[in-house]
Design a binder for these strands. Structure first.
Lengths: 193, 193
DNA sequence: TCTGGAAGTTACAGACCGGTAACACCCTAG
DNA sequence: CTAGGGTGTTACCGGTCTGTAACTTCCAGA
C-alpha cells in the first residue's frame, strides 16, 4: 500500500522525500525509521543501504530542505530581475504565506530544539545552513540600498523565526498574525534613514 | 546518590523541580521518567503516585515554569513601583539576560515544537499560559502610555521568541545578539508616535 | 509502643526504538 | 540466457520507554 509520495522513483529519493515530510509533521524524535520506510513504500534494509544511520538521514533531509528554500530565492530573482527591493518585499510576502494555519515552523529550528545533545552531528549542519541563509538576507538588504543591512536582516530573521514558533504555541491568531505589518513598517523605517 | 536538587524536601516537589530542569536541558522526549526520579533521589513508583502520567507531569512542569516567570514580573513592579515604562525596559533587560550562551529557549515554545500531536493535552495548557503572558505584556505597554500597545507587545514577543530559537540553531553570536538594540529602538519609535 | 500511610525496592509487562543478518527475488546489462 | 546488483522479506538483537504489581521499609502521630 504505497502512499502519495511513493511514485515509481528510486527508493532513496522516496525515502528522502517521505522523511522530510514526516520529520516536518511529527518531529524527528516523533517518527521512527520503520514508519518512514513503510510510508515510502519500501523497507528498513533499503534505508540503511542508502543512509548509514538515522542521524545521516536527518542531515540529508535538512540539506534537502535548505536546497528547496534556496530555489524559492531563485524565484524572487526571476520575478523581479535586478530589483532587490522588490525581491525583499517578495521575501516578506512569501514568508507570511508560509505562516498558514497548520504551520509547523522551520525544520532546522525545530531540529535544533529537538536535538538537544550539544554534540549531535546535525547541529553543525543546522548552524552552517542557517548562517548561509542569514548571509543571503543580509546581501539582499544591502543590495536593496539599505544602510544598516545587517541589522534589518537580523531583525527580520528574528521576527520570522519568532512568528513560526509562536504559531505552534498560540496558533495563527496570535502575535504572528501581524508579521507582514511589522516587517513592512520595519523596512520602511530603515529606508527612511 | 542524590544530586543538588534532592534536598530533604518532599518527593513530589523534588520530582517537579528536577523534571523542570531536565525537560529544559534535554527536551521532553529526551528524558525518561526513570532518569527524572533517579536524579530526584526517588523512584518511579513514587512519581506515579503523585502524577498520573508523564503527560500530567509535563503539564505541571509547564505551569510551574509559568509561575516562576510570573514572579519575575512581580520584581519589575517592586523595582519600579508605578513606573510602567521603566518596567518595560526592565523586561527587555531581563529578556536579554536570559539569552545567555547556553540558552535552551522557552520551555513552553520548546514543548510546543516537541509535542507535535495536535491533541496532546499539554498543547491547550501551553496556549493558555502563552496567551496570559501576551496579555500581561500588552497591558504593560498600554499602561506605559504607548498608543499601539498590542502591536508593540506582539512585535517584542516575536523578537524574543525568535531570539530564543535562533540561539539554539546559530548560537549567541547570531541575530539574537542584537536583541536589546532592536527592542529599545522599537520602543523608542512607538513612543515617538 | 503501636499503627497507618507514605516512600522505597524489585521485577515485570508490552511496546517501540535503531540497526543487522540471512536469504529470496527481480530486472537489466552484457 | 545469464550474471550480478539493487531491492524486498523475515527474523532477530539489545536497548529504552511508560506504566504496573507486589512487597518491604521507614517514620510520624496517637
Amino acid at each position: 500500500m504505497t502512499d502519495g509520495v511513493a511514485e515509481r522513483s528510486r527508493p532513496r529519493d522516496r525515502i528522502l522525500e517521505t522523511a522530510q515530510d514526516m520529520f516536518h509533521k511529527h518531529g524527528i524524535k516523533g517518527v521512527g525509521v520503520d514508519a518512514i520506510t513503510e510510508a515510502a513504500g519500501t523497507n528498513k534494509m533499503t534505508l540503511y543501504r542508502h543512509f548509514e544511520s538515522k542521524d545521516e538521514l536527518i542531515i540529508e533531509c535538512l540539506r534537502a530542505t535548505a536546497a528547496k528554500a534556496s530555489r524559492i530565492w531563485d524565484e524572487f530573482e526571476a520575478q523581479h530581475p535586478g530589483d532587490k527591493l522588490a525581491q525583499l518585499h517578495a521575501w516578506v510576502h512569501k514568508a507570511s504565506e508560509m505562516l498558514s494555519a497548520d504551520c509547523r515552523g522551520c525544520d532546522m529550528a525545530n531540529a535544533a530544539v529537538e536535538l538537544s545533545e550539544t554534540d549531535h552531528p546535525a547541529r553543525r549542519v543546522i548552524k552552517e545552513l542557517k548562517e548561509a541563509q542569514r548571509e543571503k538576507l543580509v546581501a539582499l538588504c544591502r543590495d536593496a540600498g539599505i544602510g544598516q543591512a545587517e541589522l534589518l536582516a537580523d531583525t527580520l530573521s528574528l521576527l520570522l523565526e519568532g512568528a513560526r514558533v509562536s504559531m505552534q504555541s498560540v496558533g495563527s491568531e496570535g502575535p504572528s498574525a501581524q508579521f507582514v505589518r511589522m516587517a513592512e513598517s520595519l523596512i520602511a523605517s530603515f529606508r527612511a534613514r
